[in-house]
């Protein structure tokens, strides 16, 4: 199949960047989107041009590196799919495809389609640790967690930190990412001791980064390749309110029976 690609090219963070149009004649509908970019890059290398820089690692939808804006939709807009898993049959033969990096002040463009998502790492770091007993592995079933709770925590833990929520949000907010991390721990008994401290610290770090503010557009939920629900954001907001509620222990301790 033939494709016309309009790709954002930017040499380095200081470069202003521009769109460059490429015509690709030997794309195959069974290729993934990244395989198509590999083919393009091979042609560019053969012509002695600089290949298009993009991040990728696992190519099986779990590492969160391959995020890019494809025709105005994060990861190309196929439900629950990362760019690496996006098949070319999602597009029509002869299609015009515009490929851009995530646009966010918190995610500066490093080169072409690669952005620096360190802001996410700093939010995770601000969250700190959870208290667990060290020593031997605990006996099975000593800490009981209902199946529904475990499943819900796993749904939130699915977040791969790709940044599609920030990229898709008209406000450039990072609420879905951050809330997925917070909700995941807030559901489990192991995460309770530091629950108040964690939500305050992570929201505080989010505020220091250049992310926007949530206005409940719900664009993130649609864009998320792991289909994480905005119920995560509601849970985080609930935890935030609880952490600041008068009479809570200083430093945010909460006892679990």
């Amino acid at each position: 199949m033939k494709l016309t690609l309009h790709i954002w090219r930017q040499k380095n963070p200081q470069d202003k960047g521009r769109f460059v149009t490429y015509h690709l004649d030997d794309a195959d509908e069974d290729m993934s989107f990244l395989e198509m970019l590999d083919v393009l890059n091979q042609h560019l290398i053969e012509k002695g041009e600089e290949p298009v820089a993009f991040e990728n690692d696992c190519r099986e939808g779990i590492c969160g590196m391959c995020g890019m804006m494809i025709n105005g939709l994060a990861h190309g807009g196929m439900k629950g799919t990362t760019t690496c898993q996006l098949p070319l049959r999602h597009f029509k033969d002869g299609a015009d495809i515009t490929i851009e990096p995530w646009r966010s002040r918190a995610f500066p463009v490093m080169k072409d389609l690669i952005v620096d998502r360190s802001a996410f790492d700093r939010i995770i770091q601000a969250g700190g640790y959870i208290s667990v007993n060290t020593g031997n592995a605990p006996d099975a079933n000593t800490v009981l967690i209902s199946r529904d709770t475990a499943e819900l925590a796993m749904d939130y833990a699915e977040c791969i930190g790709c940044g599609a929520c920030v990229a898709a949000c008209p406000n450039g907010a990072s609420m879905l990412f951050m809330s997925a991390k917070i909700a995941h721990f807030s559901l489990l008994p192991q995460g309770q001791v530091e629950a108040d401290k964690r939500v305050k610290a992570m929201v505080g770090q989010m505020q220091k980064e250049a992310f926007g503010a949530c206005t409940n557009y719900t664009e993130c939920e649609v864009a998320c390749p792991k289909e994480i629900s905005i119920s995560a954001i509601a849970r985080m907001n609930h935890d935030y309110l609880k952490a600041f509620w008068p009479g809570r222990a200083v430093g945010g301790g909460k006892h679990v029976a």
Partner: peptide, 8 residues
């Protein structure tokens, strides 16, 4: 963005 769709 040059192209941005907001389906939601």
């Amino acid at each position: 963005y040059k192209i941005k769709k907001d389906p939601a």
